[in-house]
Write a protein that binds this DNA or RNA. Sequence first.
RNA 1: CGGGGCAUGGCGCAGUCUGGUAGCGCAUCUGCUUUGGGAGCAGAGGGUCGGCGGUUCGAAUCCGUCUGCCCCGACCA
Length: 544
Amino acid sequence: MRYSQFGLTTLKEVPAEAEIVSHQLMLRAGLIRRLSSGLFTWMPIGLRVLRKVEAVVREEMDRAGALELLMPAVQPAELWQESGRWDKYGDLLLRIRDRHDRDFCFGPTHEEVITDIARRELRSYKQLPLNWYQIQTKFRDEIRPRFGVMRSREFIMKDAYSFDLDEDGLRESYAKMHAAYSAIFTRLGLKFRIVDADSGEIGGSRSQEFHVLADSGEDAIAYCDDDNYASNIETAATERPPGDRPAAVESLEKITTPGVRTIEALCESLGISAAQTLKTLIVNGDDGPVALVLRGDHELNAVKAQKIPGVASPLTMADPATVRQVTGAEPGFAGPIGLQVPVLYDHATAAISDFVVGANEVDAGDPTPGGSGTLSIARGIEVGHIFQLGTNYSEALGAKVLDSDGKERVMEMGCYGIGITRIVAAAIEQNHDDSGIIWPDPLTPFNVVIVPINLQRSDAVRTASEEIHEELRNAGLEVLFDDRDARPGVKFADAELIGIPHRLVVSERGLANGELEYRHRRDEESRNLKREEALTLLIDSGIT
RNA sequence: CGGGGCAUGGCGCAGUCUGGUAGCGCAUCUGCUUUGGGAGCAGAGGGUCGGCGGUUCGAAUCCGUCUGCCCCGACCA
C-alpha cells in the first residue's frame, strides 16, 4: 500500500476528549474517528486491525468446532418479553419502534434469538452438542460511554452459544471454549488472566472472565501466579439481615497472615468464607479519619457512606500514610480493635459472630507485591466472558430435544463472549511507548513499513524502494510504502505512531553498500543489513 | 439520572470577567529553497464564535433557554 494513496491522517496533538492512552493513540494514529458519544467509525487502518482480531477469533472458534452464523442486529420485542428481559434489561436496551408501531430492540446480546433458533432447528439429542457463534455489532445504551472504543455504545462482539443435552455436556462445551479463549488471547500476543466472576444477571452456575492486564483496566482482579488463583473484586449491597446475632462460640485469637492483604486471600488461607470476615476501611471524615467496618464479602457503597454524618463528602479513602498512622499497620491489615478514631459498623456486621478481622499488625516477612507465591492485585480489561447458563433461556423459550429414551429434555446452554473492538484498545494499552503504538505481529495493520529517504530526488532510491515493495508483497507481507514527499523525520514519527513492527529504510547511502537499514519497533538501534539478508529476515520471520 | 466542566476554522487553544469589525500554533493549498528525526521563506483558503430568543446604537463577550461533548458516581463486553 502506498501511503500517498491510503488517505491516512495522523494527529500530532493529543485530542482533548481522550483520557486513556489507547484512546489517544487510536485517534492520533487515525484508527478511529468519533461520530457521536460511544459511536466510532473504523478508518481503513483501524479496520485492518479489527479484521486481524476477527480472523484469529474465527480460526480458533472454528477449530474448536463452533459454527459461524449471523443473526439480525435488530430483534423483535416479543422474544424479549418471552424471556422476561424486555422489562428487566432496563435502559441499556435500545428500543426501536417501526412504522407499524411494533417494538424492537437493537440487540445488546443474542440469547433470545439463538434460543429461538435452537427450538426451531433442534429436535434430537443426536444433533447435540452444538455451538453456534457470530461476530456481530451490538448496541448497549451505556449510561456513560468512555475511553473510546473501550466502553462504547456500539461495539463488535463475538458471541457463541452452546447447546447440550445435560450438564456434563455443558461442562465439556464450556471447557472447550475455555481452551479456545486461552488460545485466542495467547495468539493475539496479549498478557491475560482468567478470573472467577459472578455470573451476574445472566444467571447460571459457572462464569469466568478473561482480562487483559493493564493499569487503566476498569476491573480490579486479585491473582496469584503460583496456584492460578484469580478473582474479580466485586460487590453486593444488602438489607439488614433478619434475626439475632448468634452467640460467639470461640474466644478471641490472634492469627498471623503474612502477605495476606485481601479478604479473598484471607478466606483462602484460613478456609473460611468472606461472609465470616470483617474488613476495615479508613476514609477521610470531617474531623480526621473514620473507620468503616463492613462484612468481608461486601463492598463499600460510597453514595451511602458519604451521607453518614462525620464522613467527608465526597467520599475519599485515606491515603496509605494515614492508614499507617491510624492503625499502626500497612493497608490490608487494618481492623477495628483499639482504634482511636470513630468506628462505624455496617448493619450487616450485626448479624454475624466468630468473625475474622484485621489486627492492625504488620508481619515482618511481608513479601513485596508481585513477588512469587503471594497474592497480587492488578487491573484488568475484560475482553472475554464465558458462562454456563444452564436452562434459564431454554426453559423460558421452550428449547427442548428428545433424548435417547424419547423423552423431552430442556437443553443446557452456555454462552461465550469476546469484545472484538475492545481487544484493539486493550492491545494498545499493553503495547505502546512514548512514540506510539507497538503492534503485536498478529494484530498489525501492516507487517513492514518502507521509509525511503529522498525518494523524490534519487532514482536509485525510487527504483530500489519500488522493487522491495513488490518483492515483499509477493512474499505475502502487508507492506506500507511511505512514498510521500515528506521529510524523513515526519515519516519516522508516523511509522512509530501507527506502530508498524518492522521498518526498512532505503537510502542512497545504504544502497551504495548494497544495504538496507532494518529496525524493529521495539529495538533501540537500527541495523544495516545486506539487501537480501534484510528481505529474507522479513520473509522468513513467520510474520505472515 | 445526580455532581462538575466545556462548546471560537480540520486539531490544540487565546479572546468572554471589563460589549466596539475574530486571533495564535499546528494542519491544508500555491511557489521557491530544503531533504537521515515532525524544515525555511513568501503568499493563500477556511470560522453565521453550538442552536434559538432577549438586553443594547452595537453581543464570541451580558441574560434566558435548548442541544452536544468531556470528567466523577451507580451500570457494564
